[in-house]
């Protein structure tokens, strides 16, 4: 009981610290004044500004579209990579693959961005009509998210008991069935974690996106960073408030779905 109290206290403090800056930003999005220095009164003026600014709204939607899609693709590639690395028998090859996987994770953003830019412009010269824009940004985001997905899933796969797979195959399951019915369900927590990380990386990234974007496609972080010289207006705070609320809804929705799924599974178990 006593330990529980300490744990609760610790978690409370940590969550307060985690959310302090977020609530600070959200609070100021309701500021009647123009800056984050002084709160001069409650007002929705920055939300009005935001909703009449269709350019910023478009950027918001595009940013999230990009994040959802790139994280999905990165997760798929990452799962493939994890399986490949796991079932590579030769130790040297396996280590080499792991090292190669981590290369992008350790290269500074500016370097990745610059080298992707060169890569895409070279490709653009070979393939006509291949310009910088949504596609190049999508490819880059997939590219830099793959390693973190692998890093999230691999430890789980390493721990998985091989006998589970043999058992499935003994029962007559083919490779595909083994994969979808045995391996992937086992890896689910890792896959979800990987997806979340990839999603977060995509939303977070500034440097790589800046280099590989073009043709009118922009993401939120590029827009926010490039506003810094003129001063980031509270309209952007209002936008963050929206993002935060949207994220909360998303998380709650996801949780509701997953709870629903597990509770129905329990019921089935009871009946069976």
């Amino acid at each position: 009981m006593k330990k529980n109290k300490i744990a609760t206290l610790y978690l409370t403090v940590m969550f307060i610290v985690l959310y302090l800056p977020i609530f600070y930003l959200i609070g100021f999005s309701f500021n009647a004044g123009q800056t984050m220095n002084k709160f001069t009164g409650f007002s929705l003026v920055h939300f009005q500004e935001l909703f009449s600014d269709s350019r910023l709204l478009l950027i918001l939607l595009e940013t999230f579209l990009l994040a959802f899609l790139s994280a999905l693709l990165a997760t798929l590639v990452g799962i493939c990579g994890t399986l490949w690395i796991r079932y590579t028998k030769k130790k040297v090859t396996k280590n080499a693959l792991l090292a190669a996987n981590n290369l992008l994770l350790v290269s500074p953003d500016v370097i990745i961005g610059a080298s992707f830019l060169i890569l895409f412009t070279v490709l653009g010269k070979v393939i006509s009509g291949f310009n910088l824009g949504f596609l190049t940004v999508l490819l880059s985001h997939v590219a830099f998210s793959v390693p973190i997905v692998v890093l999230m899933i691999l430890p789980q796969l390493e721990k998985m008991n091989e006998s589970l797979i043999f058992a499935a195959q003994d029962l007559g399951a083919n490779y595909w069935q083994t994969l979808t019915n045995v391996i992937l369900p086992y890896l689910t927590p890792g896959i979800i974690a990987g997806y979340f990380m990839a999603f977060t990386y995509s939303l977070d990234d500034f440097a790589v996106t800046f280099f590989v974007t073009g043709g009118g496609f922009t993401t939120l972080s590029v827009e926010i960073y490039s506003r810094a010289r003129q001063g980031v207006s509270l309209e952007v705070n209002a936008l963050s408030t929206l993002v935060f609320v949207f994220a909360l809804v998303l998380v709650a929705g996801y949780y509701w779905i997953s709870q629903d799924g597990s509770s129905s599974r329990k019921k089935r178990k009871k009946r069976g």
Partner: peptide, 29 residues
């Protein structure tokens, strides 16, 4: 697998909705 499938579908739906939203906003502006 069921959990993964639901999630996968959910993400696809969100992507479709966002895509439609982007198209709509682009048409408007």
């Amino acid at each position: 697998m069921k959990k993964l499938q639901t999630l996968f579908l959910g993400v696809l739906v969100i992507i479709a909705v966002l895509f439609a939203g982007v198209l709509q906003l682009k048409k408007q502006t």
